[in-house]
Structures are given as C-alpha cells and as structure tokens.
C-alpha cells in the first residue's frame, strides 16, 4: 500500500526534474582553416554561452565523421577559408553547423541556439562599425518563463496517477476477489449489490484524494509551480475525473474474471493510451487523423487540458466549460454502464 502513496511522489519528482526540454551541456568541436579574428570571435562567443562546452579543434574534415560516431559531440562548426576577409568584402563567408540529426529536436535546438549566437556576433561587429537599421525582437515566455518541463507534465502525471489508482486498482481488486472466491461469499450475503460496489470503491476514492493532495503540495512546494487559478474549481474537475476512472475500473472488472487479465487490460488498454495519446508526452496535433480522433475519447486528455488551463494559465470556469461537460457526461454514462453491467451472479 505504501507504494500507492509513494508512486505519485516519485513520478512527479522524476517528471519534474528529469524531463527538461532545455538542451544543456552541448559539446562542440571546430574545424577552422582560417583562424582569424572573426572565427576566434564566434568560437569565443559560443564557448562563453552557458549551453555550450568547447571541446577542441579538429585538424581535418575527415575527423568530423569520427567524432560523431563516438557519440559525445553534438555540433561541429566548420568555417570557410579566409573567413574575416570574406565577411568584410565579398560576403561569401560561410559557417557550416553540422549537428547529429539522429536526435532531431536536439539537433534543431542546437542549430537554432548556435545560429542566434552567430547572428549576435554579427550584430556586435556591425555595432562597432556604427551600422544601424536594427530590428530588436523582445521575447516573452508566457506562463513558463524558465521553460521547465514540469509545466507540461504535472497535469499529465495527475491524470496518469489517478487513472492508475482508480481504474487499475479497482478492477484488479475485484478480479482478485472473484479469483479467490470471496466475491461469491459477498454476493450471497444479504448485502445489496450496490452496497458491495460502493464499499469496493470508497477506499480507492480516498486514496485518490490523498494522492491528489500530495501531488498538489509537491507541485507547489517542491517543483515551485504556483496554482494560478481557482483551487476549488481544480478540485471539482479532479473529483469528476476520479469518478470517471473509478467507473472505468468497475466496468473492466465486470468483464474480467482473472487478475492477470485485469492487469493487462488496464495496463495495455488504459495506461498506454493515457500516456501516449493524451498529449502528455507527445503533441496530439502531430498525430494522424484517426489517432487524433481516438484521443478525443480519452478522459485523461480532457482532464489534462482543464488542469493546464486552471492551474498554469489561471483561467476561469468559462474557459473549461467544454472539458467540464465532456468529463461529466463521461462520468454519468460510465457509472450507469458499470452499475448495469456489474454481474450479481457468478456463472
């Protein structure tokens, strides 16, 4: 049982600290046949940047392939010959930024960072020459100024943990009673079926509430994320989502007799789609049409959207109306379906 309470904490810490989008500690090598003040200036400019680590000069272009294969170098900068001269006079100066495309996002991140630094150098060079006509972009990051990964993941982890505990635990524990035969004992007792269901569900309901509280506390105090919106609204939406998950759990257990199958169904059919399709790990907008459509029926997706809006963007009830209605109707339909399908007799 301890693991149930520990799991959300560890997941949050993992996601919060490890999942960072920033590409840091980029080692780069340089092939520079010119070795003049402009190439020096650019190399210095990039080495001084906190994201880059200068790892040395290459002697020949042949070494480029080799340094990539050994794995640590992320970027090789290749300057053309007579670089400074060409910058000032012919305009033919060329810098090649060669990156390891096997990780596409790191590669494009690295390229963009390096490009912006070189542009900065160029601007400084022009500043020295008193050249004007500058457009200065002012960049503002809304909601998440330090680009922490946790902002995107915390709502996802909340959805995942609640789904895991409510749906998986309920279905497994009912299947377990069926397997051990204690369900039969309960069913022949004078208890009403609805009482059995409620008493099965209530403990998991409370565990979820405890988890929700710990998640929110950690988010605020350990991950330093403040809740911008209305806390009551957040809790209301979470409660609806908990009901949805619990009834999914009941629904699964009504179809299943073996624990193993309950585990596999809730693991493969519930967990994977929640992780993969809810938009927590991967952007939904990049998916092909059918999967995008499929993601619409995943409760966790709606829950996550609502949480993002309330918690991070600090929006009010009118912005989460859609999510609210979708989740509520899912809850009502699923509760009815699971109560109706729940088998009162054993075959």
């Amino acid at each position: 049982m301890i693991i149930l309470l520990l799991l959300p904490i560890v997941l949050l810490v993992l996601f919060g600290f490890i999942m960072s989008y920033e590409v840091k500690n980029i080692s780069f090598a340089v092939y520079d046949p010119s070795r003049d003040i402009a190439t020096q200036g650019i190399v210095n400019k990039i080495s001084m940047n906190e994201y880059f680590i200068f790892s040395g000069y290459l002697d020949s272009p042949k070494q480029i392939e080799k340094v990539f294969r050994s794995g640590n170098i992320k970027l090789v900068i290749v300057f053309s010959e007579r670089f400074y001269e060409n910058i000032m006079h012919t305009g033919d100066a060329q810098v090649q930024l060669i990156t390891d495309g096997s990780d596409p996002n790191t590669a494009s991140m690295v390229t963009v960072y390096a490009t912006n630094l070189i542009i900065l150098y160029q601007q400084e060079l022009m500043g020295e020459m008193k050249i004007t006509y500058q457009i200065k972009p002012e960049i503002k990051f809304l909601y998440n100024p330090t680009l922490k990964g946790s902002y995107n993941f915390v709502p996802g982890v909340m959805g995942m943990v609640l789904m895991l505990i409510c749906a998986m635990m309920t279905s497994v524990s009912i299947a377990r009673e069926k397997e051990l035969g204690t369900m039969e004992v309960l069913l022949v007792s004078p208890l009403k079926p609805i009482q059995i269901i409620i008493s099965k569900v209530v403990p998991y309901f409370f565990i979820s509430i405890v988890n929700l509280t710990t998640i929110l506390l950690i988010t605020v105090f350990v991950l330093d994320m403040s809740i911008h919106g209305n806390l009551l609204l957040l809790i209301l939406i979470s409660l609806i989502f908990i009901f949805v998950s619990l009834s999914i759990g009941l629904l699964i257990s009504s179809v299943v007799d073996k624990q193993m199958v309950a585990i596999l169904i809730s693991g493969m059919v519930l967990m994977l789609p929640v992780i993969m399709l809810s938009g927590m790990m991967f952007p939904v907008e990049n998916m092909p049409f059918i999967l995008r459509w499929l993601s619409e029926i995943i409760p966790a997706k709606w829950y996550m959207n609502a949480i993002k809006k309330i918690m991070i963007q600090g929006l009010g009830f009118s912005f989460v109306l859609r999510e609210f209605f979708v989740l509520s109707s899912m809850a009502i339909i699923l509760i009815f379906a699971s109560v109706k399908r729940f088998k009162y007799r054993l075959e």
């Binding site: 810098v95 390229t111 490009t115 160029q122």
Partner: peptide
Amino acid sequence: PSLEIVPMFKF
C-alpha cells in the same frame, strides 16, 4: 559585413 550560416544534419 555578411556571412552565410548553413545548417547540416548528419545521419
């Protein structure tokens, strides 16, 4: 003063 930046993605 102008220079050209050419990105290249290996592999």
